[in-house]
């Protein structure tokens, strides 16, 4: 097994300050939002790596950095041994670009409403001057639509069908990696299962690697081999799926599991988790989770925990064992 994506010490800081004139008048310092903070992980070839987290956890930003839509502030991302941010060889960059594709959350915004489906699907190939004859039709059938749909416009399709078109577009340049950013969270349950099944089938057929970004634990449990849990831009725990679900080590992971609504928990009466996700502009000191953590000790508010390996699990917590 070898890593197809290597993420090392990745940090991304966004400047979200007001214009300098406002800052001068209101005497406010620059506001810097740390969306991703010192995150490291490897994605194995032909596996599904899932990033889970609530809003503000930085999971989408990591996805965008990996596909090259956002530049990292610090740290590196290597895809097939090529670092997109520092590589100077244009051919190599182009090759990696073709190897990595993305599926977005909103199937209504991710297809250009003025383009025919045929042109949308073939664009990744056409943009590189490749041959596109019959390509869209073939891919449409592969994702469960009909070849005759190629001449239609996106508005003629339902949300689930649009997401299939997005998948067909992602497949057209014959990528090795697909970053899936909440691919089913805008879909209804009955349609979600169709799309998830399709993605599983395609992965086997084409030997794809998925980086699966989601907030939905049930979906992640269904899809992932390896799961990384993010909190406030930091990777707090990483473990193989079964390991993570049977023995979560980080208190945040445990809280997340307890809070998720369960279909078999009729009238469950549990104490809901305390507090809310803190402001990412002024994150808590030390471990970002300590203000909400039931196990917190003074050390947690002073010292940021390092990633430690416990069995198959990597966890960033002083108390975990």
């Amino acid at each position: 097994m070898s890593a197809i994506i290597k993420v090392e010490n990745l940090t991304r800081i966004f400047d979200v300050s007001k214009p300098w004139l406002n800052r001068m008048i209101e005497r406010q310092p620059k506001a810097l939002l740390t969306a991703v903070s010192e995150v490291s992980f490897d994605v194995e070839r032909n596996s599904v790596y899932a990033l889970v987290g609530e809003s503000g956890s930085g999971k989408s930003t990591i996805g965008k950095i990996i596909v090259g839509l956002v530049a990292p502030s610090e740290g590196t991302v290597e895809v097939e041994g090529v670092d997109l941010a520092s590589e100077s060889d244009a051919d190599k960059i182009d090759a990696v670009r073709a190897d990595i594709q993305m599926i977005f959350q909103d199937p209504y915004a991710s297809l250009n409403p003025r383009w025919r489906v045929r042109d949308i699907i073939a664009e990744p190939v056409a943009a590189r001057g490749g041959k596109t004859a019959g390509l869209a039709e073939r891919l449409l059938e592969q994702v469960g639509l009909s070849a005759a749909d190629a001449g239609k416009y996106p508005h003629e399709f339902s949300g689930g069908q649009r997401q299939r078109i997005c998948i067909a577009r992602a497949l057209s340049s014959e990528p090795k990696i697909i970053v899936c950013d909440e691919p089913t969270s805008a879909l209804d349950v009955s349609v979600q299962s169709q799309v998830l099944n399709l993605m599983s089938d395609l992965r086997e057929e084409f030997g794809l690697t998925y980086l699966f970004i989601s907030h939905d634990l049930t979906v992640v449990h269904h899809m992932a081999d390896m799961i990384g849990v993010l909190y406030l831009g930091r990777l707090v725990e990483e473990a193989p799926r079964d390991r993570l679900f049977s023995a979560p080590k980080h208190p945040y992971t445990q809280m997340l599991f307890d809070a998720a609504p369960r279909m078999d928990a009729f009238g469950r009466e549990v104490e809901p988790p305390k507090g809310e996700i803190p402001d990412a502009i002024n994150p808590p000191s030390g471990c970002a989770f300590h203000p909400r953590c039931p196990l917190a000790i003074p050390r947690c508010s002073q010292e940021r925990p390092e990633m430690r390996k416990i069995g198959q699990t990597r966890v960033a917590c002083h108390m975990a064992e």
Partner: peptide, 24 residues
């Protein structure tokens, strides 16, 4: 997101402006 999809394919800003954004 369709503009992001075009960006990640590696289309030039000029092509994105003219072919993707302009018609919309």
């Amino acid at each position: 997101e369709y503009v992001q999809a075009a960006k990640l394919i590696g289309r030039s800003p000029f092509a994105i402006m003219l072919r993707h954004i302009l018609p919309n």
